[in-house]
């Protein structure tokens, strides 16, 4: 029997989260692999957003519309998705691995009795079984897991693992359907929000990032790093100490209390690579590092490394890059 795959979209104020599009790419890929159809589930969102999602090659766009779903709360989201999943029993439900998903998806999985494979980077068929691949130990190792038993399988998808541009567009738009909803209980009343930045710096979209760490030493030493970023067409990000010291603004922060990024190239300069930083950049396709300590953990996840004093090496690197241009 054809398998059904649901892809849960994350959106805010009528704009899709970038990782929602990555999830569509992953869902289409999974549907092709297991022989089935992929549908998107859009929680709240207006007609324009539904039409935007329907422009991807999908079986349907299921819209859960209710005033209780406009602002995220785990109670209302679990209520809406839980009853729909229990009624229709999709074989797979995919979610972007965001801070929002981390908050409600474990609860949802328990309510509907689904297995949950978090932060998946790829999947493959072995015989008639789907094997899910996910990184462990900060990406130094990979594990492949199989789900035991029957029933719906949930997976959350690591940022950057499924390129947006591999998502197929529809020849004719997918059907937009309203989802049946029971009573929804918003179980949090938000008293205040604080935006991390001015929304101008979205490092999650960057192809190349120069990550700056404590080793840079001070705000007056950033010049050569800015030049390096410019030469590479990169954005500048930073680890927590740089932000806490006020050397760069908070919207540049990468790691467990900042943004989660997945550039094609991440050049870590003066970053030791503590686990708090790694959780924010382990999805990078290629990591390259400059550090004075050759046993720094960052080299454990880097393809190439250069050991030495960054204040000497970065200007020299700029000169070498200038020459090769």
């Amino acid at each position: 029997m054809a398998k059904s795959i649901w892809i849960v979209m994350q959106q805010r104020e009528g704009k899709l989260h970038r990782m929602s599009r990555e999830a569509i790419a992953a869902g289409q890929q999974l549907a092709a692999m297991v022989g089935g159809t992929a549908s998107a589930v859009l929680i709240a969102g207006d007609d324009a957003l539904a039409a935007e999602v329907a422009a991807y090659e999908l079986e349907a766009v299921k819209v859960a519309a209710s005033p209780a779903l406009v602002d995220y709360t785990p109670g209302a989201f679990v209520g809406a998705l839980g009853s729909a999943i229990a009624a229709e029993r999709p074989d797979y439900v995919l979610f972007p691995h965001t801070y929002q998903s981390v908050d409600f998806v474990p609860r949802l999985s328990q309510e509907v009795g689904a297995a949950l494979v978090p932060e998946t980077i790829s999947f493959e068929m072995v015989g008639d079984e789907v094997i899910w691949k996910r990184p462990i130990l900060g990406g130094k190792l990979q594990s492949r897991v199989r789900v035991k038993g029957e029933g719906t399988v949930f997976a959350t998808l690591q940022s950057g693992a499924f390129p947006v541009d591999s998502a197929a567009a529809a020849t004719t738009p997918a059907a937009v359907q309203a989802m049946a909803l029971g009573d929804l209980v918003a179980d949090r009343e938000i008293l205040g929000v604080e935006q991390a930045g001015d929304d101008e710096v979205d490092l999650t979209k960057a192809d190349i990032i120069v990550g700056v760490g404590r080793g840079v030493g001070g705000p007056d030493k950033l010049g050569p790093l800015e030049e390096l970023a410019e030469r590479l067409g990169a954005d500048i990000g930073a680890s927590r100490p740089v932000i806490d010291n006020g050397w760069l603004p908070r919207d540049r922060q990468i790691g467990s209390s900042g943004q989660t990024v997945a550039p094609k190239l991440y050049l870590a300069v003066g970053i030791s690579g503590a686990i708090q930083h790694q959780v924010g950049m382990k999805g990078s396709s290629c990591v390259v590092a400059i550090n004075k300590d050759k046993s720094a953990p960052i080299f454990g996840i880097s393809q190439y490394g250069l050991v030495g004093d960054l204040h000497e090496l970065v200007p020299a690197l700029n000169a070498a890059l200038a020459e090769s241009e």
């Binding site: 990406g139 492949r144 897991v145 035991k148 038993g149 080299f299 454990g300 490394g305």
Partner: peptide, 24 residues
């Protein structure tokens, strides 16, 4: 609900090459 099928070093093997040379 799940069982480990395999644990492995990533295919895109991360074995850092520390770039060497005779001089800087």
């Amino acid at each position: 609900y799940y069982r480990l099928a395999e644990i492995s070093i990533p295919e895109k093997e991360i074995r850092c090459e520390l770039v060497e040379g005779d001089n800087l």
